[in-house]
Write a protein that binds this DNA or RNA. Sequence first.
RNA 1: UGGGGUGUAGCCAAGUGGUAAGGCACCGGAUUUUGAUUCCGGCAUUCGCAGGUUCGAGUCCUGCCACCCCAGCCA
Length: 563
Amino acid sequence: MEKPAISNFIRNTIDTDLAENKNQGRVATRFPPEPNGYLHIGHAKSICLNFGIAQDYQGTCNLRFDDTNPERESLEYVQSIKDDIAWLGYQWNALRFASDYFEQLYDYAIELIKQGKAYVDSLTGDEIREYRGTLTKPGKESPYRDRPVEENLKLFESMRAGKFEDGQHVLRAKIDMSSPNINMRDPILYRIRRVSHYRTGDRWCIYPMYDYTHCISDAIEDITHSLCTLEFEDNRALYDWVLDELDVPSHPQQIEFARLNLEYTVMSKRILNRLVYEGHVSGWDDPRLPTISGLRRRGYTPESIRDFCERIGVTKKQGTIAMSVLENSIREDLDQSAPRRMAVLDPLRVVIENYPEGQTETVTASNHPKNPQMGQRPLTFSGVIYIERSDFMETPAKKFFRLAPGREVRLRYAYYITCTGVIKDDQGEVIEIRCTYDPATKGGSSADGRKVKGTIHWVSADHAANAEIRLYDRLFRAPSPAAKADFLEHLNPQSRIVLTGCKVEQGLVDMQPEARFQFERQGYFCADRQDHSRGHPVFNRTVTLRDTWAKIEKTAGSLAQHS
RNA sequence: UGGGGUGUAGCCAAGUGGUAAGGCACCGGAUUUUGAUUCCGGCAUUCGCAGGUUCGAGUCCUGCCACCCCAGCCA
């Protein structure tokens, strides 16, 4: 089946531009993060958009770090961002830094001053805010607005030379203090900030603002379509103003789209930072986080994230995507690609009474039921095995068709067994069950055509390895935690459950970190990228399988409550 | 009381004057040695609301309503 072409308003715009031979038929985009945090799934949307368009239109996409505010930026973030983009499967055309353009940016500022389009303002921060007016009241002009060009030039040079204190002066564009668009009320272009920059060190003590830097950087790089999120819509007038006033190489078109919101999680850098630095999660790559590195550690594939970004579309309408869409993307990928294994998360000991004491034998298990090319593996079967505790009910609920006293089920790839007894401890908890097996059902089918309703997974007690398995669930209980002032109160205390003493197939301990599997009837898991080792196997649950039984149970439960 | 945006099903989303794609979710039913997968079927007489133009409107016009963004020397 051929995939239908992606259609969205940005691609439509590009199609029109191409049809009109705008930009000589060239398409150039860029992904412009500020290196002050880790990338998350919302950035992935922008990455897939920008790099995807470049790919599909034989264009280019640059990676440019918008590093104009040295305060919170660092090389660590630059490196993580590069790693994440590469892992997602994209290659940037040119690698650029806004800080590479500081000298050019400065020259352009001089040009603006000479044209009388920019001036040095000496109002204090508070005064500037006052003078700006409000949403409904126009601002008023600074008394320094009409400084002569020569004085502005001298002052701006002195600003660069470090002759003033932080905040003493700023460079402002001279536009319109009564504009209904607040961004046009003489926006600040440069501020004095004696902070050492992770790339330019102490070479500069003045730094250009985003609005001034971004458009010029785009123009320098000959970007044709500058894609950004909706909150910059009002900044577009300023983007265009700067480029119109200056003799720059090109004038890219800014197009805004809605950022991604995902149910039950947060995308805000501010909140993500708090979660990490206050220790509510283990780090930027905590598998519960929507960061790229978190999703990676959780077991998501680059393909699944790209597929997700394609499914959600690109529009100007702000919406919130259901988690199920993300989960569906990874399930679809892993269902095809992940080898099957058996793992018992909550082991219940089963003794098969009629199995010859001390005997073992080999059964053959398929690595993928639909893909024989993935091969088979031998599994050791014996008279003492573990099954999942939830696969046994002493008094079975309605529609439960797994193991219960007197009932027969199939052990996957092995034998039919029938429960003959239950052993409990002093507290009355089931600690072992007794069964008999039917030797005529080896491999899992009976010669007499007798059917069983349930098939359960198992491991041989003496041939299984112990493993730690981490179960992850949504980080928050509230669908839109970011909207809550007390979002920390809505953290899901069950978002991470660590199971030790799980029993898994022996072969699993030798798997490389990040290897992915389906643990049959449980879900998709991956060997933890950081903590997994032969001596201490650790698996993360990426996502559960779809679970119709859980749905039935839930429905039955709520029915019982209502009756 | 200003300006900029957005409204198509429970959640996304296509649709560019010719009679509402697709995905997720949900509900059936078939197949199944994973209660998985797969398959088949169902799921908007209607596009925020009210008028208007037109043979014909989700698409054009007018008015209204709802929601989001903007008053950092952040990006």
